[in-house]
């Protein structure tokens, strides 16, 4: 589904990704871990198409398309979803209104007719259950005055609504208490299926207890330096990142 080869990217004059390679197949869940500043969020941003990041080398193939050539909204319509680490607030725009615009533009991009109000509401009701989100929250201005947990749950709700093929969760666990974490993770797990791939970007192993990955990769200095199964995450949790840094230094 996603094939990243030798990806280099920079922001202003800071080179952040230095030849990253990653293969993700449908149905798989990949966790990207790594110390601060290793390029995890940059990877998420580059995949979503944030303009501030310049790709200087490498290719990203997504379902047979050159992802890097697509505008951010086109990527979204092709099924790429980013759950933001810091979801922005949009005052005066309710989540419902926001989602209605998004769902219908995505549908339009996929050549489907827009949903009428009734179908939209029933879709919404169905997805609300999935992430245990209350309608009163969705009536409020998007993310305005939301708690950390509410914001993240709202991200997963949006993911459920847009039914992406490739979802990237950027530190979705940050700022969550254990109950919120469980609810968010349950939501994500319900959305897992054999046609979808998920990339989970995280600092901690904690989230991976709930969203169990098929593969774990360690990102360091803009490159994947080690890959393994979920056991690698446990090892990192126990030993920290220093031994990886040492390993890389030796090589």
């Amino acid at each position: 589904m996603l094939s990243i080869k030798n990806l280099h990217a920079k922001i202003e004059d800071n080179q952040i990704l230095n030849g990253l390679n990653l293969e993700v197949k449908a149905g798989e869940v990949h966790a990207i871990m790594g110390p601060n500043g290793s390029g995890k969020s940059t990877l998420a941003s580059v995949l979503a198409g944030r303009e501030e990041f310049e790709v200087t080398e490498g290719t990203v193939d997504y379902l047979g398309k050159n992802l890097l050539e697509l505008a951010p909204e086109e990527r979204a319509r092709e099924g790429v979803f980013l759950a933001f680490q810091y979801p922005v607030e949009i005052p005066g725009v309710s989540t419902i209104n926001f989602m209605k615009t998004a769902v219908n533009q995505v549908r339009e991009g996929r050549g489907q007719a827009p949903l009428d109000a009734v179908s939209f509401l029933s879709l919404m009701k169905e997805k609300m259950k999935l992430v245990e989100i209350d309608q009163s929250l969705l009536n409020r201005s998007l993310n305005e005055g939301f708690s950390g947990g509410e914001k993240k749950r709202n991200e997963i709700f949006q993911m459920a609504m847009l039914e992406p093929k490739l979802a990237i969760l950027d530190e979705t666990d940050s700022g969550l208490d254990i109950d919120a974490l469980r609810i968010v993770a349950n939501g994500v797990n319900k959305l897992r299926d054999k046609n979808k791939a998920i990339i989970v970007v995280t600092h901690y192993q904690r989230l991976l207890e709930y969203i169990v990955p098929d593969f774990v990769h360690v990102l360091y200095k803009g490159k994947i330096v080690k890959s393994g199964t979920k056991d690698l995450a446990l090892e990192l949790e126990a030993k920290g990142y220093d031994w990886i840094k040492d390993e890389v230094a030796v090589v």
């Binding site: 944030r50 951010p72 979803f81 926001f98 615009t101 847009l162």
Partner: peptide, 10 residues
């Protein structure tokens, strides 16, 4: 960007 990422044009 948040809107774009949800498939909404600029």
């Amino acid at each position: 960007f948040y809107c774009l990422q949800r498939g909404i044009d600029e």
